[in-house]
């Protein structure tokens, strides 16, 4: 393993090796990004087992489309976008994006939250969100997409994206307050 790690110190070198369909480089790519990409996929899919499948499919897609990488910008960012798209396609394929407007609650306030919460706790909170809210919140709050891009990605309007984000925040705020109370 360490030998393989030492072979590809640079992201671009690794990308070039993957372009040559080098099996060692492909394995190295998996080892380098699997944990991070599994977390990404899990945030969208909401189930770790399914997220692993999505991630593996995402890696296969990366190997197929590696020639499209232009060596401009972050290779990790390119890999991450492919993983997100794969996860979104998976969720769409399962028709999980059912926006339940009735589920929405009032706007959350700007109350501060404890930073002592672990990432796994936050992941669980996201997993509990309805699919539509989860998608929009992940894309906007964590990945940094704007509402127009989210609308294009999910096939919804900007207004729908904004309202879903608002409601996702409200749900999370409520759950975070409950979580903090239980911790205290």
């Amino acid at each position: 393993m360490t030998r393989i790690l030492s072979l590809f110190t640079n992201e671009y070198d690794l990308a070039r090796a993957v372009q040559r369909q080098d099996p060692k480089a492909q394995t190295r790519l998996y080892e380098k990004f699997a944990s991070k990409m599994l977390a990404v996929c899990n945030r969208y899919v909401g189930d770790k087992m399914e997220a692993e499948d999505v991630m593996i499919e995402g890696f296969m897609k990366i190997f197929d489309k590696i020639d499209q990488f232009t060596f401009q910008g972050s290779f990790e960012g390119w890999v991450r976008r492919i993983m997100i798209n794969e996860a979104l396609m998976y969720v769409r394929g399962k028709k999980m994006i059912a926006v339940d407007l009735e589920y929405a609650i009032e706007e959350p306030n700007d109350a501060a939250f404890s930073t002592d919460l672990e990432a796994e706790d936050l992941m669980r909170l996201i997993e509990q969100l309805p699919e539509g809210y989860r998608m929009v919140f992940n894309l906007y709050a964590i990945e940094g997409y704007n509402h127009q891009e989210i609308g294009e990605l999910l096939g919804i309007s900007e207004g729908t994206s904004k309202s879903q984000l608002s409601r996702a925040r409200a749900i999370l705020q409520t759950k975070l307050m409950k979580l903090e109370k239980s911790v205290i």
């Binding site: 944990s35 991070k36 599994l38 770790k48 709050a141 964590i142 925040r169 975070l176």
Partner: peptide
């Protein structure tokens, strides 16, 4: 909330 989740989960690994 966005800031909290982004800070905690952007580099999160599983």
């Amino acid at each position: 909330i966005d800031e909290l989740f982004a800070r905690k989960l952007a580099e999160h690994r599983q």
